[in-house]
Every structure is written in structure tokens, then in C-alpha cells.
Design a binder for these strands. Sequence first.
DNA 1: GTCTATAGCTAGATAGAC
DNA 2: GTCTATCTAGCTATAGAC
Lengths: 236, 236
Amino acid sequence: MFNIGASAMKTANRTAGEKTKAVILETALDLFRGHGFEVTTMRDIARAAKVATGAAYYYFPSKEAIVAAYYDQVQRLHAEKARDGLEGRAGLRERLGVVMHLKLEILEDDRMFLGALFRYTGNPDHPLSVFGKGTEPQRRHSVAIFQEAIAGTNVSEELRQFLPWALWLGHLGMILFLIYDETEGQQRTHKLVDGMLDLLTRFVELTSSALVQPFVQPFQAKMLRMLREAGWTVEI
Amino acid sequence: MFNIGASAMKTANRTAGEKTKAVILETALDLFRGHGFEVTTMRDIARAAKVATGAAYYYFPSKEAIVAAYYDQVQRLHAEKARDGLEGRAGLRERLGVVMHLKLEILEDDRMFLGALFRYTGNPDHPLSVFGKGTEPQRRHSVAIFQEAIAGTNVSEELRQFLPWALWLGHLGMILFLIYDETEGQQRTHKLVDGMLDLLTRFVELTSSALVQPFVQPFQAKMLRMLREAGWTVEI
DNA sequence: GTCTATAGCTAGATAGAC
DNA sequence: GTCTATCTAGCTATAGAC
């Protein structure tokens, strides 16, 4: 409970348990990176981390939970880097670019096991389902980063309500695309993200221009109503 | 190899193997519907189908493969119903509505185990990955249905290239949404689909109107270029 | 509360006999 | 094409040490 947000905890302050947990996590990630997620067994991880199998399960209820913990770590890192990276940047396009590419850079080397994050996507009740109840805190944290990215920019009040969620959803798609992207340095993903952000920001600008406003307004209104009905109300 | 498209095969013509496979499939689906996907074991299925566990695995390499086979069946049914349902319908909005709602109706009662389709989404090399090489034939077949839906309507040549793929992608999202939708009769999904289709068709109309064409054209051009670069060329 | 050691369960998947 | 037997690995359980 009181650990939330304690991302900068010093090693010295950690309890024995926290240290063990960290060792298991890092060992597992090393193995995932070296041999792949599927072929690495919990027994392998425990052995390499020099703990009993039971200890690994004591800290991580499942193998996927290790990847989920890794992703938590990623999110903390992302929030940190985004805070720095956004400083001084004013334009919407630039700010979104910073946030998205930072995320890509953080994840890039771990494409091999990122797929595990999506294993329970079709399983609403599973605690690790991307869209499920169990991952709501992480989801909110992630959305908050996108909220931060559009904060201060001249985005209309209507858009501000659901754009962060759309960006979060889009960023999930980006991660999936990244996993499938075999191009050198995953440049294809980077290019696609840039293209999408170009389109998005141009669209946002367009919607605020008085000239096309009459055309766009009914669209936007309908879209917002629809999303609200679909259960995507943003209650911040 | 020679079975593809033989959806109307008569029972009498089936070999013993084909009969066994069908029995296993139907038995499994019954169990999935009655008790759920996770709790139903391959042993349960084999026992209920009165075959050995090995026999089940002889026909279906994994438990998810059974759901995949079910989905093949769904697609054949969908193609059939869509052919009938589209007859006489001319407008884009109406045609898309027919195709999408038909799909929903076919899947509606089986939400409980549809999630299994997405289990390997994050696993590019898995034969059952939704976006992977192994499911390309099914994907093409599904896209062809959407192509059929927009055929004959006044959609621009540019849009015609990638709209079917966008619809396929959207329809995947729809299925995911359906899985999470606990509302009575899954009306929320139906409403969302209708809303989305309204927006889409209005947007398509807008893009062909001479008035806004100068605004929309560069958008469209960039989008197509981008998608092509991302590897979504449509080589029909 | 943090761990070890170990044993066992379950169920997905496979091998090899027939 | 079908069966029986077996393997594997995720996961659980327990009892005890510190």
C-alpha cells in the first residue's frame, strides 16, 4: 500500500523480500532475453536466481506476472523519462512524439517477451487481462502519462476527455506492431507512429479551425456521445 | 488441401476421420458452452466424444485449435449469410451494417470461449496468431467478405484499397468488445458498431464531396502512403 | 513475514504400439 | 487413425527453518 510511487527506493532501504523479488525479476528477464519466454521455465528461473521454485511463486503468481512486473517497471521509467523529455516542449505533435518514441525505445530490446502481456487479452476475468479490472491501476497510470503529454496544448475540452484513452489504446496497438516488426531497429514502427501522430495532430488542428468547424462539430459530438455510451467515460 | 471451400460436404461423403473430427469439434463446443473454455480439459473433451486423448490431439494440435476450427466454421457461415443478406442492398452503410451485425449474431452465444482466439496475438510465430503467417488464409477470407460488402458502392479507388483491411481490423476490435460486453443481448456492442459505421460512412461521403475534397485529399494520400510503408499493401 | 525443500497435482502435449 | 502410456511444466501444498 505504501510502496506505490516509491520508484526511487534505494537498495539499502529494501527489505530482504524486496531484494529477492528484484533478483528473481532481473534473472527471469535475463533468461527471457537470452532464450525466449516460452522455453524458459519457472524452474529455470528459480535455479538461476538461486531460490526455490516456491520462492518464485511466492512473489509472482504466474510466469506472465513476471512480465507484468517488468511492464510496471517500464511504466515508471516511462513516466520519469517523459517528465524530463516533455520539459520545454510546447507543441502537441512534438510532445506526443516524445512520449511515444520514449516508450518504443524502452521496450525495443524486449520485443521477444512483450507478447506475454497480451496472453489474457481475451479473458476479461483474468487479473492480467489488458482490458480487465485487475489492471486498472496500471491503465490509469499509463493514461495519465498521455494526459500529461496533451496538457498545456491547445486541445479542445471535448477532445481532452477521450484523447488520452485513445492514445493509450493506440499505444497498445503500437506495442503489438513493434512485436511483429522485424525491420532493422524497428524503423517501420517508428515511421508508422510518426505518420499516425502527424495525421492526428493535423486532424486536431483542423477540428479547431473555424472554417471546417461546422463540418467536424457534429462528427465530434456523435463520437463523444458514442464513446460515453460504450462505457468510456473519463472520470478523472 | 482439397477440402478448402467444401463447406456443404454431405455427411455420407465424409471419411471416418472427418466424422471423428466433426464429433470432437461439436462435443468440445458443447462443453465450452456449458462449462467454459478454461475448465474444460482435453481429457473431458475426448471422454465426452468417446475417443482417446491422443485422438483429439491427432485432429487438433491444441485446445485453442478447436476454437480456431470453430471460427473457420463461423467464417463459412458468415460468408454464406452475408451473400444472402447483401442481396438487394445498395448503400454502403446498410451493407456494412448487414455484414457486421450478422457476424455479431453468429458469435453472440459463444462469447465465453471466443477469447481463446486471441491467446497467441502477441506471438508472431505461433500458427494460431491472429496477425501471423499461419492464419493468412483465414484473414484473406475474412477480408474478402468486407470487400464484397463495399463492392458496388461508390467508394473511391483509394479507399477501396485499404478499407477492407481496416474493417477486418475493426471487426477484431468488435469481437474483443463483445467478449467484454456484459449488457443484455450485448446491445452495447451493437450500438457501438452502429455508431462507428455511421461515422465511417459519413466520413466516406464527406471525402467524396467536392467541397471538402481539398482538405481531405492530403490526409488520405498521406494515410495510404503510410499504410503502404507499414506493409499493408493490398495485392488482390 | 521470508524462504527452503520436496512432493504432488493437473492438464496440455507427445511417442510409439497396433 | 486410434489408443495407451508417458512427459513436461505450470502451479499448489506443506512442513519447517529463521
